[in-house]
């Protein structure tokens, strides 16, 4: 993991929406992400933070520039190959949980595992149950999304993002629709993923508390990187969550 190759790299990425009046979403962005980083992307509405996340997550294709994963360019991949890369190396968490409503929490977490199809049913079940239990949901394995609270649903979504053990988690406003208590919970979970498991989490957020508590903050303005500052690990350690770091929420 630490052979020097960055986990994720954007090199001169520009995304322009074609149209009568072409709209530039992000412009000439070059960023490198290593393993075990906890990164927040902030910026005003329309600054292109979500667009950048989708480009990094291979959900969208840059107009110019390239995205590298583990040092390999993704520019030449077709739709199916990009889907496969997402399945294996990227976990997504969105503002809304997007759980399949007819499936139980356990089945929702098993969905990416079953798609990858590397393990047998018993293993997948155990692994999914383990992920959910680690997020404090051991009582709710067989409940459907509509029987869970908003915070619980979002934790199921995080468990689903972790299902195939990806090195990279991309989160788009993961706490955007949660109350402060749930926000804190989700934040701690994400932090634990970074600190204990060495994964990289990149989270788009407009909550300054959340952003302030991350180790690295990227600020976008008008589709460009305005600021990319790494907080000292010490101060990040001292802070346990967004509430505790409320006073630092200025970037």
């Amino acid at each position: 993991m630490t052979d020097g190759t960055p986990l994720l790299e954007a090199r001169g990425v520009t995304r322009i929406l074609p149209g009568i009046v072409p709209v530039t979403l992000v412009e000439n962005i070059s960023i490198v992400f290593g393993h075990g980083e906890f990164v927040s992307i902030t910026g005003p509405s329309g600054s292109g933070k979500s667009s950048l996340l989708y480009l990094l997550g291979l959900l969208d294709v840059p107009t110019t520039g390239e995205v590298f994963i583990n040092g390999v360019s993704t520019a030449e991949l077709n739709k199916t190959e990009r889907a496969e890369t997402r399945l294996k190396t990227i976990g997504f968490v969105f503002q809304f949980h997007f759980l399949l409503p007819e499936f139980s929490a356990l089945d929702n977490v098993m969905l990416p595992m079953r798609k990858l199809g590397l393990r047998d049913a018993v293993e997948m079940r155990e692994s999914a149950a383990g992920l959910l239990s680690a997020l404090g949901l051991e009582e709710h394995l067989h409940k459907r999304p509509d029987q869970l609270s908003g915070g619980q649903r979002q934790r199921v979504a995080v468990a689903r993002a972790l299902a195939n053990d990806p090195p990279l988690i991309l989160a788009d406003e993961p706490t955007g629709s949660l109350d402060s208590r749930s926000t804190e919970q989700v934040f701690h979970i994400l932090k634990k993923i970074v600190d204990n498991e060495g994964r990289t989490v990149i989270a788009v957020t407009h909550e300054m508390d959340f952003a302030a508590a991350t180790e690295r903050r990227i600020h976008l303005v008008d589709g460009r990187v305005a600021q990319d500052e790494a907080q000292s690990p010490a101060s990040a350690m001292r802070g346990g969550g967004p509430e505790a770091l409320g006073s630092h929420a200025q970037s």
């Binding site: 997550g57 959900l59 199916t80 889907a83 399945l87 969105f94 798609k115 990858l116 689903r160």
Partner: peptide, 10 residues
């Protein structure tokens, strides 16, 4: 949408 983002091909 979520299935596609999770990595289900078309």
């Amino acid at each position: 949408a979520i299935m596609k983002s999770l990595g289900f091909p078309e």
